[in-house]
Amino acid sequence: MAINTDLLNKATAFIWHEADLLDHKEYQEWLSLWDKNGLYIVPTDNNETDYENTLNLALDDADMRRMRVARLESGESVSASSVSGTVRMVSRVRILEETADYVVVRCAMTLNELRHGNLVSYPADLEYRLKPTADGFLIARKVVKLMHADGFLRTVSFIF
């Protein structure tokens, strides 16, 4: 089978850039990667597709993303201050669909978090809907499918 390596490289470079921004808490720049109608979604049920009519761990429109970032940056949240850092690895990138309006990309992520000296690992599938623009991609949708989404998670004071 033929793989469009040019598109794969562009999408991978964009997703790696986003991952680096999040691990280094460059949240304002992260916000600028989004299409204004974009949705950041962390489902509780990875088989669900109707996110708006389902309870999610997070379903953030532009306002909620801005508020989520504000909370993490405010210094008012004791749990956010206790996160020593995150390191995420993103790989296994595959283009699932390409149209004139968007590209659907699926990849694997393992995020490691250090808090109070404890390492916690979050394996997940990421699904992006990326919108090509003259200046590169914008994120039209990002779905974070945690492997243990329906289990008992630890609390999360960072962004997947």
């Binding site: 999610n56 761990l57 379903l59 909620m64 989520r68 909370r71 004791v78 749990s79 206790s82 999360v156």
Partner: peptide, 18 residues
């Protein structure tokens, strides 16, 4: 519910920390 509750809400993680 998503805004305040659950592991990614704006409230629960701070309760959990305390």
């Amino acid at each position: 519910h998503e805004h305040f509750q659950g592991p990614m809400g704006f409230g629960t993680p701070d309760d959990g920390e305390a």
